[in-house]
Every structure is written in structure tokens, then in C-alpha cells.
């Protein structure tokens, strides 16, 4: 009963969400798309960072890479091929980053991810200025806002489904062991670097695809637009707020926070980063394991 319900409820919600654009206004559709994007990003981020506690600060490095790939290729290749190329580039980038940092202590990974988006932005800017001679590109794709929303919704559903599936496989168990104690994990026969690498590449590919799917909304793309560090920041705080090691935690954090941030950035554009920073610090201090874990603790206390 419980099992069928845990499958039926999300499916029903998915159908409802997929039908929503038929009645939604353009503004509401924009909000829905934003929510779907951040649910996808936060869930994909948590897939890797939630259990391993390797804090990735590089979300926008992959997201921006996806968007920029579409900007470069949208006129020369058919759309599905462009998406595939973006996915491959994201996976390749993740492989390079992962191979060079994930066999070392977590701090090296954090540092690398911290500067990665800056690096990619600098490299692309240099390349565009010196080699192609143009900074800034246009995306002219025959895709409606609805089409983008449906794609993002599908990617988000896939991400959450993949997370659920992985959690019931060997890989998911390995991730949880690594999160608790890497030494025990290694001595139990878990190949640490391989497990981390597989999941990091999966998560990064999803994030890259999210960037590629979202990119037509921009129309005009340049490195400083698509590599906006706020995206990395928001993704981390959303996943943390909801609970990064729960299946629905990131989604639960992403939806309300996205709406709050939308409101803040339109009504308080100047103080927006300050409020964000304060909120972030508050989450770390007050709800270090996320809202879901906090609610559970309250319940247990009431029982006891």
C-alpha cells in the first residue's frame, strides 16, 4: 500500500505539473520553469554531494557549459544532437575534474569546484575574444516556453527517479557508507574513487543538460550571463534547506526558496545578496541537516 502510494503520488503530481502550462499565464509559466530548473539542479547536486559530503560549488560551471554549448551549436546542428553534445561535454568535464581531485581528500575537490566556473568563464571569454572575435551569441531556436518547461520537468523527474533507483542499488549503499566513514568503506571493499566519480559524472551531466535546456530562454548569451555564481549558491542552499540526503529534500527546498528569491530579486535587488548570505548562514546554524530531518527530530522528541 505504502509502496504503491509512494509511486502513485509523485506520478499524479507529475501529470498535474505537465498539464499546468495549458492554464498558466506566461508569467506563471516562467515561475514554473524556474522551479522545475532549480528542483532539477538541487536534486542533481544532492545526488552527489548529499551523501558524500563533497560540497560542489561548481553547479554553474556545468550549467553554464550546457547553455554555452547550445549558444555555439544551435545554428549548425539539430536540437537533439546539440543536447547530446552538451551532455557529452559536461560528462567529459566532470571526468577530468573528478579524476584529478576525487581520489584526494574532499577539500581539494571543494577548492577545485570553487574556482571552476571562474576558470571556464575566463577561458571562453579569451577564446571568443581572441579566436572567434565575437563576445556574445544569439540562440534562435524554435522552442516555446512550454516546450522548455516540459523538457525541464522531464529532466527533473528523471533526476529524482534516478536518485531513488540508485539509493536502492549497490551504488547508493556505497555512497551512504562513504558519507559515514571513508576508511570503513575502503576496508569493506568499496572502490572509493570509482563510486564518487560515477555519481559525480552522472550529476554533472544532468546539470549540464539543465543548462542546455534552459538556454533558449536567454536568446542572447555571453559568458558573464550564463556563468552567474548565484546559481551555484542557490542550488547548494536549496538542497541543504530541504535536506540533501533525502530523496525529496532538494525539491522541497527548491520550490519555496525559488519563489522567495524571485520576490527578493525583484523587490529588493540591492540587498538581495545580503539577505541570501544571511539566510545561508542561518540554514547552516539552525537547520544543518535540513527541514525534513528537523521535523523528524521534533516528532521524535514529542513521542519521547
Amino acid at each position: 500500500m505504502r509502496k504503491t502510494l509512494s509511486l502513485a503520488l509523485p506520478l499524479a503530481a507529475l501529470v498535474l505539473l505537465a498539464a499546468a502550462p495549458l492554464v498558466a499565464s506566461a508569467y506563471q509559466l516562467g515561475l514554473l520553469l524556474g522551479m522545475a530548473t532549480y528542483v532539477t539542479l538541487a536534486s542533481a547536486w544532492a545526488l552527489f554531494s548529499g551523501h558524500t559530503r563533497y560540497i560542489s560549488l561548481a553547479t554553474v560551471a556545468f550549467y553554464g557549459t550546457g547553455a554555452y554549448t547550445v549558444a555555439v551549436l544551435n545554428e549548425s546542428l539539430p536540437y537533439p544532437v546539440v543536447l547530446a553534445v552538451a551532455g557529452v561535454i559536461g560528462a567529459g568535464l566532470a571526468l577530468v575534474v573528478g579524476l584529478s581531485t576525487l581520489r584526494l581528500a574532499g577539500i581539494y575537490f571543494v577548492i577545485f569546484s570553487f574556482g571552476l566556473s571562474e576558470l571556464i568563464r575566463e577561458l571562453i571569454t579569451w577564446y571568443e575574444v581572441n579566436v572567434t572575435g565575437t563576445l556574445g551569441r544569439y540562440i534562435f531556436l524554435d522552442i516555446t516556453a512550454r516546450g522548455i518547461y516540459w523538457q525541464m520537468l522531464a529532466l527533473g523527474a528523471f533526476t529524482i527517479g534516478l536518485t531513488a533507483w540508485i539509493h536502492r542499488r549497490r551504488l547508493g549503499l556505497a555512497l551512504r557508507v562513504i558519507g559515514d566513514d571513508e576508511t570503513v568503506a575502503a576496508h569493506s571493499g568499496i572502490h572509493l574513487a570509482r563510486v564518487k566519480l560515477i555519481v559525480f559524472v552522472l550529476a554533472s551531466t544532468i546539470i549540464t543538460l539543465a543548462g542546455a535546456i534552459a538556454s533558449p530562454r536567454w536568446v542572447y548569451v555571453e559568458p558573464s550571463i550564463v556563468f552567474n555564481p548565484t546559481v551555484s549558491f542557490l542550488t547548494v542552499i536549496m538542497a541543504l534547506l530541504g535536506g540533501a540526503n533525502r530523496l525529496w529534500g532538494p525539491a522541497l527546498g527548491a520550490v519555496p526558496l525559488f519563489l522567495v528569491f524571485e520576490w527578493l530579486s525583484s523587490d529588493f535587488p540591492d540587498t538581495y545578496p545580503i539577505i541570501l548570505g544571511l539566510l545561508f548562514i542561518a540554514v547552516v546554524f539552525v537547520l544543518p541537516n535540513g527541514v525534513l530531518a528537523g521535523i523528524e527530530r521534533l516528532r521524535q522528541r514529542r513521542k519521547a
Partner: peptide
Amino acid sequence: ARTFQLVRILPSLTLMENVMIPAVFGA
């Protein structure tokens, strides 16, 4: 297989999961 001088268990996992790990990832 080994134990550790300062005991190392996986606190957030159940007893079953703790013990299952080397069975799952072992030879």
C-alpha cells in the same frame, strides 16, 4: 578483514546495513 583500534561503526546506518556492506562489496 579488520577491526579498528578505536571502534569505527557507521552511526547513521542500521545494524543490518552496517554488517551487509562487506558482504555486498566483498569478494
